[in-house]
């Protein structure tokens, strides 16, 4: 028996998704071991968000499997992977009530007050969540995910709607979470962000995993033609 049970590694095995007979993703295979930040990059429509949703279980794959080390990614009956969406979904309640709701429906282990404090939201606790700024909302979404004690956190373009100041705050939080041992899998269209944060890069193009590489080497020497022209700023078909 392990000290701290973990749902990792995640094994994505020949994962494919079709809609109306059209292939939108895959087949895609990769492993996600414990630790670090992995960035999924690629042009719009490459299937980045789709891949995250399949991994998180929001969509059912047409073929292939998402294999967690522990069945269903559950530990003691609780799902130990969480997701933060591109546009954070804020319930029509106060910031604190948003956290309380998540805690209530999942039976989460962490305390709402710790979440408020840890993400710099204590002074905003009673404010209606939907009236917070974009950066504050994203922080609240992260706090809400943190509350669930996730081993893995899926992030879909976590700062695409934010100004540089707020982006910096969010990135600092992501690095802190990674340092605390949370494994992060995030999509981003911002190379700079991938470069700043990611240890590993998955480059997706037209539903295919074209490159799976160490971040430093990916940005220095992309192996494929597609990655090279993408990094050069060309439009990819």
């Amino acid at each position: 028996m392990r000290d701290i049970a973990s749902i990792l590694p995640l094994r994505v095995d020949s994962l494919a998704f079709e809609a109306d007979g059209k292939s939108l993703l895959g087949p895609v295979s990769f492993d996600l071991p414990k630790g670090g930040i992995t960035a999924i990059i690629g042009p719009n429509g490459a299937g980045k968000s789709l891949l995250l949703r399949l991994c998180h279980g929001l969509l059912v794959p047409t073929r292939g499997r998402v294999n967690w080390a522990v069945e269903g990614g559950l530990i003691a009956g609780r799902k130990r992977h969480a997701m933060v969406f591109q546009r954070p979904v804020m319930l029509r309640r106060s910031a604190r009530a948003n956290l309380q709701h998540a805690a209530m429906v999942t039976g989460a282990g962490r305390s709402v007050e710790d979440a408020l404090e840890g993400f710099g939201l204590t002074h905003l606790a009673e404010r209606p969540a939907r009236l917070l700024s974009g950066g504050e909302q994203q922080r609240l979404a992260l706090a809400r995910a943190w509350l669930l004690e996730p081993d893995v956190l899926f992030l879909d373009e976590p700062s695409s709607q934010l100004d540089p100041g707020a982006t910096r705050q969010i990135e600092a939080i992501l690095e802190r979470l990674a340092a605390e041992g949370v494994t992060l899998l995030m999509t981003t269209h911002d190379f700079g962000q991938a470069r700043r944060l990611a240890r590993r890069v998955l480059f997706l193009h037209r539903g295919q995993l074209v490159e799976d590489a160490d971040a430093t080497s990916f940005f220095a020497q992309p192996r494929t033609e597609e990655a090279r022209s993408f990094l050069a700023g060309d439009l990819l078909w």
Binding site: L58, K79, M83, L91, L148
Partner: peptide
């Protein structure tokens, strides 16, 4: 709300109170 609630494991009829 659908995806957020599904992410929290709340779907269909269980989402009604929220």
């Amino acid at each position: 709300y659908r995806e957020h609630l599904a992410s929290l494991g709340v779907s269909g009829i269980r989402a009604v109170p929220t």
